[in-house]
Amino acid sequence: MSEGFDADMLWDEFHRVVNMNSEELRTYLLADASGEDGFSADPDLGIDELGRGVLHVLRKRKMDLTDDDRDVMRRVVELVETVGNKSDDQARHMLMSAGHDPLRA
């Protein structure tokens, strides 16, 4: 994806590739972060940084986006474009941590 994407195009592309809603993503990230040790006292500890960023973006309106939000959106779109064709478990885990379930194509 080119850096030249305007805010509207980036917003649309991000919401096209992120096919999990915020509750589905949050549940996935918390389950993934809990591992075998169970949930930590701080629910954000152990949660994938990019996934946390996606959750923040999903809860915002387009007009409230920050530069950091737009960076997260670019990273997610680029990740899905790069890894989206792979079907192994590691690729699926990486994509789902960013809000994209490849099985929902």
Rank of each mutant, 00 (worst) to 15 (best):
R26G: 05
A31V: 06
V54E: 10
S87N: 09
H93D: 13
V57F: 01
P43G: 11
G84T: 02
L58F: 04
F14C: 02
M1E: 11
V18A: 11
T66W: 04
H56Y: 10
L55W: 08
A98T: 03
L65I: 06
D67E: 15
R61W: 03
S40D: 14
S2P: 08
M20L: 15
M9A: 13
G35E: 06
D89T: 03
N19D: 14
V83W: 03
V57Y: 02
E3P: 01
E81G: 04
L25G: 05
S40K: 15
A7E: 12
R52Y: 09
W11H: 09
D69I: 06
S2D: 14
D69P: 04
R92H: 10
M63F: 08
M9G: 08
D8V: 11
E3N: 12
S40L: 14
R75H: 11
F5D: 14
N85L: 05
F5R: 15
S40F: 12
L58C: 04
D42W: 07
F14G: 01
N85W: 10
V80G: 07
D68A: 15
N19C: 06
G84C: 05
V83P: 01
L55Q: 09
V18P: 13
R52G: 15
A91N: 03
V76H: 03
D64S: 12
A105Q: 11
H93F: 05
E23H: 08
M94S: 06
R92S: 11
H15R: 15
V83S: 04
K62Y: 03
R74P: 00
K62P: 02
A31H: 12
L95D: 12
D44Y: 14
R74L: 04
G53N: 11
W11K: 04
R52H: 10
K86H: 10
L103Y: 06
V72H: 00
T27V: 10
G46R: 00
H93R: 15
G84K: 00
K62Q: 14
V72K: 01
M73Y: 05
G46Y: 03
S34N: 11
K60W: 08
D6Y: 12
L30Q: 15
G46Q: 05
D6R: 11
G4K: 13
A105I: 01
D89H: 01
M96A: 06
D68M: 01
D67P: 00
R16K: 14
E78R: 12
M1V: 07
T27D: 06
H93G: 08
N19P: 07
V17D: 00
S22I: 00
E24N: 04
H100C: 14
D68L: 05
V18R: 10
